[in-house]
Amino acid sequence: MKNPIMQDDDLAAMLRALGHPVRLSILRILSAQNDCCCTDVTQCLPLAQSTVSQHIKVLLDAGLIERQAKGTRNCYSLRTDRLDAVNTACGGLLATLTQAPQRLPEAV
């Protein structure tokens, strides 16, 4: 069984993917209208389809969205399980960082 606590490298990869305003816009678009193809997303943004495709690939690689083939098109939707995990991990990280100072972890 996989460890339910997100590892730092996995969280960092997802945060890198979230670290661009266009990718945040894409997530908002997918949140409002699930199962969008790249053309649908492009119509909502002032960017070329090739640029939108590159940003979608980053979100796919980070596991924040998923792709489903529908005929000759690929449709994209949010991975709410992964977004929930990021939300939980960030909340836990911020809570830990704002607590009283603790001992440093032992070197590995």
Rank of each mutant, 00 (worst) to 15 (best):
D40P: 13
N3H: 01
L59P: 00
E106M: 08
T42V: 07
Q43N: 12
E66P: 01
G19Q: 06
A12L: 14
P46V: 10
A17K: 05
D40Q: 09
T80N: 07
D10P: 00
K2D: 15
H55Q: 08
S31H: 04
E66L: 06
L104N: 09
T96M: 12
G92P: 00
Q54M: 10
L45H: 10
L78Q: 05
Q102M: 12
A100Y: 05
L104P: 00
H20I: 12
L97I: 10
I29F: 06
Q7Y: 03
I5H: 06
L18G: 04
Y76E: 04
R23Q: 14
A85Y: 03
D81C: 02
T98L: 14
D35H: 13
A69G: 13
P21I: 12
L104A: 14
S50H: 09
N87L: 14
A69K: 03
D8H: 09
C36D: 08
R23A: 14
L27P: 00
I56L: 15
T42A: 15
N87V: 07
C90R: 10
Q33C: 01
C75L: 12
A17P: 00
L59I: 00
C36W: 04
Q102E: 11
A62K: 00
D61N: 08
Q54V: 11
C36R: 00
I29E: 14
L93R: 00
L93N: 04
Q49P: 00
L45S: 11
P101K: 15
P21C: 06
A12N: 13
L104S: 13
C44R: 13
K57I: 10
N3I: 01
S25G: 08
A32M: 06
D61A: 01
L59Q: 02
A85R: 09
A100R: 07
I65T: 11
A69E: 15
N74V: 03
E66V: 06
R28H: 07
L64F: 04
V22L: 11
Q33Y: 03
K70I: 13
D84Q: 12
N87D: 02
T96W: 12
Q49H: 05
Y76C: 03
I5C: 02
R79W: 00
L24D: 04
L78M: 04
L30E: 04
H55I: 04
H20T: 11
L11T: 08
R67W: 02
S77I: 01
L97V: 09
I26E: 14
V41D: 15
D84E: 15
R67G: 05
K2A: 15
C38H: 00
S31W: 03
D61I: 00
G19P: 03
L11E: 11
V41K: 01
L47T: 06
S77D: 14
D10H: 10
I56D: 01
D9T: 05
A32F: 02
G19T: 03
C44A: 14
